[in-house]
């Protein structure tokens, strides 16, 4: 399947430039409920991640905590799971979420990403206020978004999760906001 955002994919030149990539077809899953952290533990993953933090488990992907009892598991380099989304409990009180289908995944990299995001988002995403490992559930260009600050291929990036029906809209708003930063790079 081709990237639904192919026509919008935008990459400027130079290391300083911002790059927005579409990870909609990369694997992600989620689990929620009182049994969620036990389930993580039983799979050898850390369950003591504070809400709104993201933890890099190297080849086992990223674990993102959205509350005390909601965790997303993100695999930027794995293809979307081809199985049907589970709806039955994975363990007592651990309900799977349909992140693969409900949320689009965009990844933003480049030095001025916090300054660019300030055109769209009211949360300070500068390194001081939003260090690596931090997650913000907030709004971007008037729509809800989850922003995670993590490393990807040795570079600090923002992963953006927006409702999949808003992916084109969000990408359009991002690309418009990015253009002033990338003019010199092209």
């Amino acid at each position: 399947m081709a990237s639904p955002l192919q026509s919008l994919a935008f990459e400027g030149g130079g290391n300083e430039a911002l790059v927005l990539r579409d990870f909609r077809l990369a694997r992600r899953a989620g689990v929620r409920g009182p049994g969620a952290s036990d389930l993580l533990t039983s799979h050898g993953l850390p369950a003591d991640i504070a809400p709104n933090r993201i933890s890099d488990q190297s080849d086992r992907g990223l674990v993102m905590a959205l509350s005390q009892r909601e965790f997303w598991l993100l695999h930027p380099d794995a293809a979307a799971s081809s199985q049907q989304p589970d709806s039955a409990a994975l363990a007592a009180g651990a309900w799977p979420l349909y992140c693969q289908h409900s949320h689009a995944w965009l990844m933003l990299s480049g030095e001025p990403k916090a300054a660019m995001m300030a055109k769209l988002c009211g949360v300070d995403l500068g390194d001081g206020a939003f260090p690596l490992g931090q997650v913000a559930q907030t709004q971007m260009a008037h729509v809800s978004v989850v922003i995670a600050h993590h490393d990807y291929q040795n570079e600090a990036v923002f992963s953006l999760f927006v409702d999949q029906s808003l992916a084109e809209y969000a990408a359009g708003a991002l690309i418009d906001a990015m253009s002033e930063f990338n003019q010199s790079g092209i």
Binding site: P51, N52, S67, G122, V123, A136, Q137, T138, Q139
Partner: peptide, 17 residues
């Protein structure tokens, strides 16, 4: 714009609520 402290998410613009 006013800021409200969300017990889960911290201080945010009131427009997020």
């Amino acid at each position: 714009m006013k800021i409200m402290h969300c017990p889960l998410n911290g201080p945010r613009n009131i427009s997020e609520f």
